[in-house]
Amino acid sequence: MNEYIDLIIRSVIAFAILLAGSKLLGKQTISQMNIFDFIASITLGAITANLTFNSNIKIHHHVIAFFMFVGVILATAYISMWSQKSRTLFAGDPTVVIQNGKILEKNMRSMRYTADYLNQQLREKDIFNIEEVLFAIIETNGELTVLKKPQFRQVTKQDLWLSAAPESKLPIELVMDRKIKKDNLKENQLTESWLMSELQKQNTALEEVFYAVLLPNGKVYIDTYKDHIQFPVDKE
């Protein structure tokens, strides 16, 4: 087989099995990567890279190795669901680094976590004064979660005894790039005639709509191609 054709076939197969593996493993590996997920992702990437470029190993051997490793990852995930000890073994435990405004230096040293990095992550959460922090915890995926002291937390409507309109559903996309989202209309017992009447109320034709969404409060938000902004803030 021509080496270029072989490379193309291997690349397509590598992409296909990587996509299939990602679907099997779900979103957690991408969005909430802990130590075990990190190792798993690197290994799967290495296998697919070898499948693409290492022609000395047969394609089906790579595919078998890939899905065997996916199977191991799924097995450990299911074991972790039922066993606290397994979760701790594979993912570790969260670590408290600030308690009642005081930095826990021993916990930070055990993680090789520096004060500079701690300050950076606090600033990313709009915290510039450590005394505002009741607890700060390093989660198993490396993210810092912070609980402020009560006097520094944002005031809510509940705190002020103000009534709030109930919301029981997510925004519903109606139009995207001039095209009606018919499935969304059907799932929410809405009709195209209702949509057209809503567009008409705002003196807008379907051809002018870039994006339209039904908000939880019952209002329809419409964005048109013509924004009528004379001086855009950021123009490429």
Results as ranks from 00 to 15, higher is better:
E3N: 12
R109I: 04
S168E: 15
R10Y: 12
I222Q: 13
N107Y: 05
S80K: 00
V155H: 03
L214P: 00
F36H: 08
I138L: 06
V175P: 05
Q200N: 08
I47Y: 09
E139C: 03
K181R: 09
T29D: 11
H61D: 06
L25H: 01
I229K: 11
A75R: 07
Y78S: 04
L7E: 05
L174Q: 05
G45Y: 10
L206M: 13
V97Y: 01
Y211C: 03
N2V: 12
T140D: 04
I64H: 08
L174D: 01
T114D: 00
K169N: 12
R10F: 10
Q84N: 14
Q189H: 14
G92I: 00
E132M: 09
K125A: 04
Q200P: 10
P94W: 03
D6T: 07
P216G: 12
I8A: 07
L160G: 10
A65T: 06
M68R: 02
L7K: 11
L160W: 08
L24Q: 11
I98E: 01
M1D: 15
S193A: 10
H61Q: 11
K23N: 10
Q32S: 03
V72K: 10
A205D: 15
S41E: 07
S110L: 00
E124V: 02
I42D: 09
V175R: 01
L199V: 05
K106N: 10
M108P: 08
M68T: 13
D37W: 01
V63Q: 03
G21R: 02
L7W: 00
K179T: 11
Q202N: 10
K125G: 05
E192N: 12
V97N: 01
I13Y: 04
S110A: 04
H62F: 05
M108F: 07
G142L: 02
N56Q: 12
R109C: 14
I79V: 13
V12K: 04
L199M: 01
K125R: 08
L144A: 03
V72E: 00
P171D: 04
V72R: 06
G26R: 00
L214I: 08
T52P: 00
I73T: 03
